[in-house]
Amino acid sequence: MTNDNWVPFNERPDWDDIEPVPQDDGPHPVVPISYTEHFREVMDYFRAILAKDERSLRALQLTAEVISLNSANYTVWHFRRLVLEALDYDLEEESIFLETIAEMNYKNYQFWQHRRWVAQKRASVAAPDELKYTEVVFNDDSKNYHAWSHRQWVLLNLGGWEGELEYCSKLLSQDIYNNSAWNQRYFVITKDPSRGGLQAMLESEVQYTLLAIRQAPSNESPWRYLRGLFKDDKLNLLTRNDVITVCLEQLAEEESSVHALNLLLDLMASGLVTGRGGEQCFRKPEGCKVISEGLNQGAASVTPQSHKRYVKGFYGRRCMNVD
């Protein structure tokens, strides 16, 4: 936070017309922060500029200093946007500024909000840059929530859908457990205007997902994705032998495969009937106890009473990791 080359404002000639404004904390504040002298002075000058509402180049530079000290100060970001507009500032320059402070701000709401603001002004020309930028972030942290939200916003507002599905596949090939990439995949197949919506994508996505499930059955993400594919069309799910088969397969493999059971119970809630002897479908008795329990409940998981048991039995994920 301390910079050796930093010159205090009271030693800067171009600032001597400004009377710094101290923070009005009152005589006995609670949660008082022991600011450093540097922090205090910069903030005092910022308060002065803010009070004057001075939208000048030096004000712009001052906001950059404040941001470098505390990038969570949303007031300064807001004021910076006012100054940028007043100065009709070059937004390419602003992008460069954002680059220079990026690394410490990957998880900062204000930073990303500002980035969105700049990108919106630059319009579609910004799309490739923004997409590229989020990819850089994902190299470090492939689940960065802000970056994913930003990327979705860019796609929806500035375009750049080509290659997005492949990008999801690439991230998933690196880490099939990356739920953020699964979520993005769902976003693409439902929102990309060129893909014709979920129905058009359904077949290939089901195949992709089943493959992922067989690759790592304890991975909850593709199971949820699979349910998501049939979210609004559960009856269709009942006709999917491939889906039902994968459930039974996994249960045969591992009787406590909670994800398979979860889906199967949902299927039964939607109307899949295996009958009283249904449990014989399963080789392992534990799995079928659940199923028969579900049947005894009349409707699988979904009566409130059984729901409790259901949660009781099923809370807890990743059971496959245990052994």
């Binding site: 559960k234 006709t239 939607s270 009958g275 009283r276």
Partner: peptide
């Protein structure tokens, strides 16, 4: 969500042949 269940039989009948492969041991549904 239960009304979906009331259609169960129909749906099930409709796709019964498909199930039989995996569900052959089913008794008196």
């Amino acid at each position: 969500s239960m009304p979906g269940l009331s259609k169960t039989c129909d749906v099930f009948e409709g796709s019964k042949s498909g199930f039989e492969a995996t569900d052959s041991a089913m008794e008196d549904p």
